[in-house]
Design a protein around this nucleic acid. Sequence first.
DNA 1: TGCTTTGTGGAGCGCGTGCTCTATTATTGC
DNA 2: GCAATAATAGAGCACGCGCTCCACAAAGCA
Lengths: 202, 202
Amino acid sequence: MPRPQLHAPEAVLDAVEELLAEGGRAALTIRALAARAGASNGSIYHSFGSLEAVVGRAWLRRAEQFLALQRAAVEAALLRDDPRGAVQAAADTTAQLAERDLRAAHLLVVLQRDEVLTDALPIEVADRLRALDAALLDTLRTLARAVFGRAGAAPVDVITACVVRLPAALLFPDVRAGHVRQATRDQLAAAVAAVLACGLPA
Amino acid sequence: MPRPQLHAPEAVLDAVEELLAEGGRAALTIRALAARAGASNGSIYHSFGSLEAVVGRAWLRRAEQFLALQRAAVEAALLRDDPRGAVQAAADTTAQLAERDLRAAHLLVVLQRDEVLTDALPIEVADRLRALDAALLDTLRTLARAVFGRAGAAPVDVITACVVRLPAALLFPDVRAGHVRQATRDQLAAAVAAVLACGLPA
DNA sequence: TGCTTTGTGGAGCGCGTGCTCTATTATTGC
DNA sequence: GCAATAATAGAGCACGCGCTCCACAAAGCA
């Protein structure tokens, strides 16, 4: 048997989150990461292959956590036969995640998905990222069907506004500031209800 | 008299907008900018002093345009004694600007204010940026007074959600895609009305 | 026609980056 | 003990970056 692993990959991903929280994507360099994780760059390259792959895995870890939370909340509401409550719950997931694990929410807020899914990612990571895209789209379609009775482009777009864009606008600044205020969540709920009431474009 | 200027500074700022539209901030390098503007890097440094200064001036040009548009719309609505209409108009300003000059709106959407106001900016540019901050805050306070009767932190925060955060969430993706849809503007109007109706946090 | 002044062009400097490469170390199976 | 395996450390490479520097060009003034 070979030499055992000294630095757990999970610890490297934690260091990624620390650096991102402190200085954004620009502060996340191989050297800074190695120093923070107490490893060497050679070691990081041995286990991850590239910096993009490290970022991809860090994002993946949190995005999967987020989507699982969202999916559970949506399904619970749908079991209660409450489609609009499901949309509200889906929209509020970022706040939920921030409550449980602020650093996880912070990562997803600081790094846009498009900054993560680049051309040079290892196939396996890219595949899992695309699978997450599909899972989110599936949730959006489920919500569209539950609220509007169908899952075409227009209904899904309205749901996307409620579940993706509005939370990004209202919750993300709070997450960046380190605390999600109740007033913000109330504003979000009101805005989501209003956009849903707006209905489908003519 | 000295040698006359061969490359108009305005043309360089136009080139900035083109590069930002094509590849985001990462694509905006001195070399790319010089090539696009048909100038040399020496020439650009002679008239601007640094890349940050170029970006600052480009942003400034469009932000001043934006704020003038917003201010005019707000004042018109307030003259009609329509405070909530003034908030709606202020929120819709990005869409208005995109209609008149898509590239101007694009610049403001692609580049966040915080990415522009860095430490190393020339004093004059930094001062004008801070003056813009003050002007925006003034507009927000005016709206807060008109709607809520006072301009404390809480009322201003509600107005900020309506006029800054909601448009960023709903309109910016459309601007990036090159076209602001009417349905999106309707959603924004509904969301703004809902957040206003939500009132001040208890 | 110099002289001064200011804009222009582009070679090149120093630096930080992602990444590679290799010697070394730690572990297990024989 | 010794070979086999794989993780580790870190020097170093190539590259692109912002920026500097200076020789030169184009204009008005004497």
